[in-house]
């Protein structure tokens, strides 16, 4: 028996909105500690990892670990039948569920849906706990804007960290540009820019993955970029009181 109730159903909708362009079919894992999801994008360049802790739910029960294979596209079709202010409950009865039930509750209506599940034998990747040599915390809408603007100039974006801060740069056919974000310790947390640079990095990435993933900015006013030289970068959106949504993106390297 599994039951998880989102107090803020809009949050769940934003999470699905953020990953729907990146991953197609995913295994939703539920166990005593909460819900998790890990899936690579179709080109195996990025890995999406979601972790939601049971304490963040209005109601949470999971007697036995469950794996529920679902199509993100079909999940979205069901979620489109819910309002952003609805409370959303996920539920299954049996141990090997073939469907996942949804209840959408608002003050004037209650809806019930069932999503057919599928069995996906997806390779799970072990993400080692890494000490990143550069960790940058900045406003998520600022990061989104920089990626969108520089992404118009070139499909590869460079990220260089130093004690002074973080610099985004592009060199394209039409020309080049760079944006250096200044560190500021304003007391307003959503505007703060913090850099912990033990070792500077200089990495290149396909900016289209950032632009796809940055829909997750709706989840958090801050984004955390963790980097080490020649390692995948991690973009992390903290989901208040619940957990986090991460994108691991493999770098582009000089051949």
């Amino acid at each position: 028996m599994f039951e998880a109730k989102f107090e803020d159903g809009g949050l769940f909708k934003k999470i699905v909105e953020a990953i729907k362009e990146l991953v197609k079919n995913v295994n939703l894992e539920a166990n005593g500690t909460g819900i998790s999801l890990q899936a690579m994008d179709t080109s195996h360049v990025a890995l999406v990892a979601l972790q939601l802790n049971e304490k963040g739910f209005k109601k949470y029960r999971c007697e036995k670990s469950l794996t529920m294979g679902l199509s993100i596209e079909n999940l979205q079709k069901i979620l489109k039948c819910s309002g952003n202010d609805d409370q959303i409950t996920l539920r299954t009865q049996d141990e090997e569920p073939t469907t996942l039930s949804f209840t959408f509750e608002s003050k004037n209506r209650i809806s019930e849906f069932q999503l057919n599940l599928m069995s996906l034998d997806q390779e799970q990747l072990g993400v080692p706990d890494t000490e990143y040599s550069s960790v940058v915390r900045m406003p998520s809408n600022e990061f989104t804007k920089i990626c969108r603007e520089l992404g118009n100039i070139n499909e590869a974006i460079g990220i260089e960290t130093s004690k002074e801060g973080i610099k985004f740069y592009v060199k394209g056919d039409i020309g080049e540009g760079q944006v250096s974000v200044k560190i500021n310790d304003t007391e307003k947390p959503e505007e703060r820019v913090e850099c912990e640079v033990d070792e500077p990095v200089n990495l290149s990435f396909a900016v289209r993955y950032f632009n796809l993933f940055n829909k997750a900015s709706a989840l958090s006013s801050q984004v955390i970029l963790s980097m080490s030289q020649d390692q995948p970068l991690v973009i992390e959106y903290i989901i208040e009181e619940m957990g986090s949504l991460k994108l691991y993106l493999a770098p582009k390297i000089n051949d």
Binding site: M40, H44, V45, A46, L47, E123, Q124, L125, G126, V127, P128, A156, S204, A206, Q231, P232, Y248, L249, A250, P251, K252, I253, N254, D255
Partner: peptide, 14 residues
């Protein structure tokens, strides 16, 4: 030029 690497080059399959 820049070669895109794959994520499963860095993370082992479990």
């Amino acid at each position: 030029g820049l070669q895109q690497t794959k994520i499963n080059k860095y993370f082992s399959q479990i």
